[in-house]
Every structure is written in C-alpha cells, then in structure tokens.
C-alpha cells in the first residue's frame, strides 16, 4: 500500500516536473514582442503622402528594420527622427507620382526579428486599408482601388467559398432535401431559406441586429439535428409541421443561418464605401454555391435511385449520419459557450 502510494507520488512529481519543463520550454517561445512597429501613410493630395514610422526600442536598442518604399518614391521632406519613451518616431513626406496603390512596401530586416508591423493607409477620399505584417512575410502590398467588377468577383467568390466550406449550412440543406420529395416544394423551400438568410445577413452586416456568434453557431447545429430527426420521423410515416410545410421551417432556421453567414462576412472584412455591393455579391456567391451543392446532390440521388431500390434505407442512413454529426456539433459548441 505504502509502496503503491509512494509510486503514485513519484509519478505525480514526475508529471509535475514534466508540465513545468514543457511550460518552461513553451512560455519563452511564446513570449512574443508585444509592442509592434507602426507605419501610417496618409494621402495629402494626388501624389503626396505623409509617412509616420514608429519603431519600438528593444532593450534600449532601435529595431534593426529599414523601411523601403517603392523605387520611384521621392522624399519631399527627409525623414525626421524623434525619440519617444520606448520608441523612435520617424516622420517624412513623400511624393509618389504613380500612387501607392498596388505597390509593395518592404521592411528590410524584419524577418530576423519577432516584431510585427501594424500598417494603416488612408486615402484622400476616406478609404482606409490596414494590415499586420509578420516577420515571415516582411512586406506590405498596398491594395489597389477596387472596381465594381473586382468587388463583385471577389465577394461572389468569397460567398461560394464560404458556403462550400460551411459544412453545417450544407448539411442543413441536405437534411431539408431528405424531407422534400416534390420539385415545387423543393424550390419553395430553398427560396424560403434563401430569403430568410439574406434578411438576417443584411440586418447583421449593417449592424441593425447583432447576436453573439457562439450561441448562433450552437443553434445552427441544433437546427440541423432537428431537421435530420424530422427526416427519420417522416420515413417512419409520422407527420409534423416540418414534414407538411418544410418551407416554413426552412424560413425560420434560415434566419438563424443568416447570422452565421454575417459572422463570416464580418470576419472577412468589408470595403469601407461599398458595403451594400459587397453584401449583395457575397449573398449571390452563397446562392451559387448552394445551387451547385443541390445540383450535385440531386444528380447523385437520382442516379442512385435508378440503380438501387433501397432508397428508404439510404435516406434513413443519411438522416442518421447528418444527425450524428449535428449532435456532435451541438455538444461541441455548447461546450465552447459554457465551459
């Protein structure tokens, strides 16, 4: 007994030592320099810009990083250096006849440090761009002004990308398709889902309605679980609101899924002046992605139905599969909220 206790005590001590050793190894590695360098560029007229370049002092030494502007940029006012507590501020005025949009600003030597650079660019018309430059990629590409088509293309692609990688939204659509058997009802159901998520996506993007993302994500998982359960009930000959009017349920839960899309869109960032345009094309992209998914599912389902007679078993298996994944997400997302 005593030997067992002694052995356990030794094991605990060894474990504690291991934890301390790991912490000792990890913590210094994670001790990243918390004060980033800062670059601010403000356009003052068509070809002139003021540049603020603030670098932190590390143990009293200046950051060994040199700001390199595009080759055709000329100094109108040479860099004026001013020491501040813990940092050095450099101010200059530059002339860039070809503009800075689409040009690269390099931070020579940054790759040898662990310091980030926060970059902010403001144009005359009020547009702003900002980014954090990491030592692993020590340059900043000033974004070019986006045209209508560029915004339309970018946000449509983002919308398609988001829905095709958003497995929860796809599984919700798939579970609705297990319930709907008629083409007209399918069109009605998908349209209701589209209208609903478009409404909440717009409301959330414009900041008119906001919901915290974690509960929304948990509710989205729950919505998939509920519709998958309804699909199983339907196969067992039961009747319910979801089975009779799937488009009503699609609309209700679609409102919820719109908040999920909005969270993703806000994360992606919005062009300052073109929020409605970006929103429109993001939504268009989501619809295109959704239709691509529905077309693929219908093609496989119709083909399988032609070959295999056990359609009911396959639908039940699919509903259980979707339900199991959704149940896992519900637990996982609730865990993230409460624990």
């Amino acid at each position: 007994m005593t030997a067992a206790l002694s052995g356990r005590s030794t094991a605990v001590r060894l474990l504690a030592a291991l934890v301390v050793a790991i912490l000792g190894w990890v913590v210094p590695a994670a001790a990243h320099e918390v004060r980033p360098a800062y670059l601010q560029i403000d356009q003052t007229d068509d070809s002139h810009y003021t540049v603020l370049w603030k670098t932190p002092l590390l143990s009293g030494m200046p950051l060994p990083v040199v700001l390199r502007l595009p080759d055709d940029v000329k100094h109108v006012v040479e860099p004026l250096e001013r020491p501040l507590p813990g940092s050095i501020l450099q101010k200059r005025v530059i002339s860039a006849p070809a503009g800075l949009a689409g040009r690269q600003i390099a931070f020579v030597g940054l790759q040898a440090t662990i310091t980030d650079v926060l970059v902010r660019v403001t144009w005359l018309d009020g547009r702003q761009a900002s980014a954090i430059v990491r030592p692993s990629q020590p340059w900043y590409l000033v974004p070019a002004e986006q045209s209508f088509w560029s915004i339309a293309w970018d946000y449509t692609a983002l919308g398609i990308n988001h829905i095709l990688y958003g497995l929860d939204h796809l599984l919700f659509v798939a579970s609705l398709m297990l319930i709907v058997r008629d083409w007209r009802v399918l069109v009605k159901t998908i349209t209701a889902f589209t209208i609903a998520h478009s409404v909440t996506l717009a409301l959330a993007t414009f900041g008119l309605v906001t919901l915290p993302p974690p509960p929304v994500e948990a509710m989205i998982a729950l919505s998939i679980l509920l519709v998958a359960a309804e699909a199983v009930r339907m196969e067992r000959g039961k009747v319910s609101l979801t089975i009779t009017w799937p488009w009503v349920v699609a609309f209700g839960f679609g409102l919820l899924h719109g908040f999920g899309f909005a969270g993703a869109m806000v994360d992606l960032g919005l062009p300052q002046r073109d929020v409605p345009l970006a929103l429109l094309f993001f939504n268009v992209g989501v619809e295109i992605g959704q239709l691509m998914f529905i077309a693929a599912i219908l093609a496989v389902a119709c083909s399988a139905r032609l070959i295999f007679t056990s359609g009911r078993s396959m639908r039940i298996a699919a509903a259980y599969g979707i339900g199991a994944i959704a149940a896992f997400w519900v637990v996982e997302r609730l865990d993230a909220i409460f624990l």
């Binding site: 496989v300 119709c302 083909s303 032609l306 070959i307």
Partner: peptide, 13 residues
C-alpha cells in the same frame, strides 16, 4: 462512387 453512379445511371438509360 458518386461519379461512377452518375455515369452508370446514364449508361443504364
């Protein structure tokens, strides 16, 4: 499997 199913169904018809 999905691709083979679609092609087989087309060939079957």
């Amino acid at each position: 499997t999905a691709l083979a199913t679609i092609i087989a169904a087309l060939a079957l018809r």
